[in-house]
């Protein structure tokens, strides 16, 4: 470019300053949430807000004693792990077959779940599950959350399976290997990193999903995220507890996201973008 070296250095400096500024804007609200969760209850609502305080776990203790927080957490784990396993169990073989036969329209149909509003599915599901008296059951929650996890698993795994050279399959077939054996013994081990990425993304998507549990859970099976409402109701008097709840709900996805950050973008865009 036409710029002189000193000019370019000045621009590099400006670039860094703007980048740090962006980082601060991105980080501050989250940091505020975490800080508030450790403030003594009388100080959370102090005005003007305080920055220096004696950190305490009081809000977390209150949360645990005044709400069935552990139960909600268990429910969230049951639904999230259940739907992730279900998605993997159905999605991995389906992605393998779609990649081998190049028949991808069933995979495209699963994308409808990403395009239609959740309420569109909730209305018929509500009627269906009410008919068989399954509203509030873990089964209903796991099945509906699998609608979130299945497309993630299939679309994250497809490019991994596509990357396996077809000559490997053909050689195995010549040796008399059945498709089922090829899948289990050859293809699956070759896409193990893809399995890990898809499992983590499916977990995060399922954990974060709000709408289905809002309608289909009951007081016994309510997930953390569907219980957020109760915390907000309490939050009008107890911001500390609200921020403690928000921090705990955000923690698993944030930790897992940090683990898979390198593969995150290609996974989140369901293969539309190579990260």
């Amino acid at each position: 470019m036409t710029t002189r070296p000193s000019d370019s250095r000045w621009l590099d400096g400006l670039n860094l300053v703007l980048l740090v500024l962006a980082g601060v804007i991105v980080m501050t609200p989250t940091a505020w949430m975490v800080l508030s969760s450790f403030k003594p209850s009388y100080e959370v609502t102090a005005y003007p807000p305080t920055l220096v305080f004696q950190p305490t776990l009081e809000n977390y203790a209150t949360l645990n004693s005044q709400t069935p927080f552990l139960r909600y957490t268990m429910n969230s784990l049951i639904v999230t792990v259940g739907s992730t396993l279900f998605g993997l169990l159905l999605g991995a073989p389906a992605a393998f077959v779609a990649s081998w036969t190049r028949i991808t329209w069933p995979a495209v149909v699963t994308l409808m779940a990403r395009m239609a509003p959740g309420t569109l599915f909730l209305l018929p599901w509500y009627v269906m599950f009410r008919q068989v008296d399954m509203i509030g059951s873990y089964t209903a929650l796991i099945l509906t959350h699998a609608v979130i996890t299945l497309p993630v698993v299939i679309w994250v795994l497809l490019p991994y399976f596509d990357n396996i050279p077809r000559s490997i399959y053909e050689a195995a077939q010549v040796d008399g290997c059945s498709p089922f054996r090829i899948f289990r013994r050859i293809a699956l081990p070759l896409v193990s990193s893809g399995l890990a990425v898809s499992a983590i993304l499916a977990f995060v998507f399922s954990w974060n999903f709000f709408l289905f549990a809002l309608v289909l859970s009951n007081s016994q099976t309510k997930t953390l995220i569907a219980a957020s409402f109760n915390f907000i109701g309490e939050g009008s008097t107890n911001w500390g507890g609200l921020m403690a709840a928000a921090t705990i709900i955000a923690l698993p996805p944030l930790i897992l996201a940090a683990v898979v950050q390198r593969w995150l973008i290609s996974g989140l865009t369901l293969g539309a973008v190579k990260g």
Partner: peptide, 26 residues
Amino acid sequence: PGIMRSLFISPFMMPPVVAGMMWLVI
């Protein structure tokens, strides 16, 4: 740096519900 990447990833990996709770307070 990896830490910067994690930082920029953090807003969109947290549930929108959590973002809502925290901005309600702010």
